[in-house]
Simulated scan of single mutants.
Amino acid sequence: MGTDRWIRRMGVPGSGNVRLVCFPHAGGAVTFFTGLARALAPDIEVLGVQYPGRQDRHREQPVDEIPRMAAAVGEELEALLSDGRPCAFLGHSMGALVAFETGLLLRGGQASKGLTRLFASGRATPPAGPLPGDLVTGDELLTELHRMGGIGEDVLNDPEMLSMIMPVVQADYQALAAYRMAPGASLDCPVTVLTGETDPVVSPQEAARWQEVTSAPTQVHVFPGGHFYLQDQVRQVAAVVRESLLPG
Rank of each mutant, 00 (worst) to 15 (best):
M181S: 01
P126T: 09
D172T: 00
M161T: 06
M164N: 00
A178R: 13
T137R: 15
Y173P: 00
P126V: 11
L162V: 00
L131R: 15
A128M: 09
R117E: 12
T137V: 14
E140A: 15
L135A: 12
R180P: 05
P127S: 08
G150M: 03
G109A: 10
T125Y: 04
V155N: 00
G122V: 06
R123W: 10
P126R: 08
A128Q: 13
H146I: 07
T102N: 14
P167G: 08
Y179I: 05
L118Q: 01
A124K: 01
G103C: 07
L135H: 08
V98L: 06
T116H: 10
G149D: 01
A182G: 13
L162M: 01
L162K: 00
I151M: 04
M181K: 09
A175M: 04
Q170Y: 08
M164K: 03
D134H: 13
P130A: 15
L176S: 02
T125I: 15
A175T: 01
L135S: 13
M166G: 00
A171I: 09
D172F: 01
T125R: 13
S112Q: 08
A171N: 10
D158W: 00
I151S: 01
L145T: 04
G133Q: 10
T116C: 15
T137A: 14
L106C: 10
G133S: 14
V169L: 03
L142H: 05
L156Y: 05
V168P: 00
L104N: 03
G109K: 09
A120L: 08
A124I: 11
V169G: 02
E101D: 14
G109T: 11
A120C: 11
M148C: 14
Q170G: 07
A178E: 12
G138T: 08
A178N: 11
P159M: 03
G122N: 00
S163D: 11
L142E: 06
L141W: 08
G138E: 06
G129E: 06
A177V: 02
A111T: 07
A175V: 04
G138S: 09
A99C: 06
T102M: 12
V155L: 15
Y173I: 03
S163R: 05
R180H: 14
I151C: 03
R117K: 03
H146G: 06
R180Y: 05
Q110V: 15
G103P: 06
I165W: 01
L97T: 06
I165V: 12
Y173L: 02
E144W: 10
Q174E: 13
V98Y: 01
P132K: 08
V98M: 07
S121D: 04
M166E: 03
T143V: 15
S163P: 00
M148V: 14
P159N: 02
G138D: 04
G103L: 11
N157D: 11
L97P: 00
D154F: 06
G138C: 11
E160V: 05
L145V: 09
R107K: 13
S112Y: 12
V169D: 07
E144A: 13
E160H: 07
L115K: 01
M148S: 04
P183H: 09
